[in-house]
Design a binder for these strands. Structure first.
Lengths: 217, 217
DNA sequence: AAAATAGTGTCTGTGAGACAGTATCGC
DNA sequence: GCGATACTGTCTCACAGACACTATTTT
């Protein structure tokens, strides 16, 4: 059998959080040569001795490069081609990671609006756009938007997360009905004391892992 | 920057066709060493000089190894791990290809039922199962099942394709209504002359490429 | 005529949106 | 009390399934 020159294989992670009323994506400043000094998605190489698969790689990259953890890390797609990396033909297995709540400020990490991330190294802006497309398509069919919220949230918070992910406004009453029927959250016993209004019941996600529905929310 | 040992990167293709009242998948007999002599999915290495991306690789593999062509080649996912190939840590970008109509018999190509493909090399049986899951989930949201039919088909053929892909039975009247509303097919002027029954109008797909709907069919 | 498949018209139940109305807080 | 947000009850419309009915062919 002939052996072929192998393409460069990397794993990139689109790390998403929800604050300032929009989806935000984490970027790092590159300190190595292609695109040195520019903003880029966290990414890295597969460690053959540590990683059981590329999603493990994504989680390790997330932990070591951003010091964040995520309950929702999923593979998006593999993007490849001869021109996307100046070093040659490359392929990257793109993952996305949803961060619960507002991340603590961290040296080296820059959060930019996912809808308009500004100039990024490689084709990373495209990878973010593809992630948003996927989230928009899958959002209403899964509990994924719930993984962008802190451990305790109100129904209004949850609806707002769905609205921001999907880019639509949802009917409040219908949303409550469907969340109830789909049985995806558990009430907590504490009450939220929002300023100047009736407090709302707090909930947590019933399932600790992303879950697909067979109905739209 | 340190360089890391790179995993083996391949592209595998789940080639699907619809005949004998079930989804069938194409396999080849391996003639090289890991799993030599066993059945496996068509697959190969990226040719850095020819392929613009891994989907190009999948199309080239499809053409050169099975002599088939497909209007619907899509990436499924990248499957990776240290144990799936005895040669070491490997990653494969899995694609699926839908073949229109009943393929001509071909030396070297074996068609097996996708739902029960029998023993296959590597984790290829898992890759087929994952493809069926994806198709089942996406079938009702796209014109994909139409790409399993020949260039001219009846509404009953189309419904039957959806039923086999999704593993359900569909209401005939509702199906006609929705196909009409979604406007995904064009009537042809010929009439089908099925044996012993009323002939049915023939149609072709309006769109030459897979298309997602925003409604379920 | 009978059998078989193609295609249509109509009823009904379900679920989603709209929206008004009630509840509970801070001030 | 008033404003604000949380939550609920009800009406209505649209759509999907069920199913009977008609249409057109072969035998």
């Amino acid at each position: 059998m002939t052996t072929f020159p192998s393409p460069i294989l990397t794993v990139d992670v689109v790390v998403l959080a929800l604050f300032d009323d929009a989806l935000q994506v984490a970027t790092l400043t590159r300190d190595a040569d292609p695109f040195n000094g520019q903003q880029a998605l966290p990414g890295g190489y597969v460690h053959l001795d540590k990683d059981q698969n590329t999603t493990d790689t994504a989680r390790r990259v997330l932990k070591t490069k951003t010091d964040l953890t995520s309950l929702a890390v999923e593979q998006l797609a593999t993007v490849s081609g001869p021109d996307r990396d100046p070093r040659g033909w490359s392929a990257t297995v793109v993952h996305y990671a949803l961060i619960q709540g507002v991340p603590a400020p961290s040296r080296g990490l820059t959060w930019v609006p996912a809808a308009a991330p500004g100039p990024l190294a490689f084709d990373h802006a495209d990878l973010i756009a593809a992630t948003l497309d996927r989230l928009r398509a899958r959002g209403s069919w899964s509990n994924l938007p719930g993984f962008l919220l802190p451990n305790a949230f109100t129904l209004s918070d949850l609806r707002h997360s769905y609205e921001l992910v999907m880019g639509v406004t949802l009917n409040d009453a219908a949303f409550r009905r469907k969340v109830d029927e789909l049985d995806i959250i558990c009430p907590l016993e504490g009450q939220k004391s929002k300023a100047s209004a009736r407090p709302a019941q707090l909930y947590r996600l019933k399932d600790p892992k992303p879950q697909a529905f067979d109905r739209r929310i």
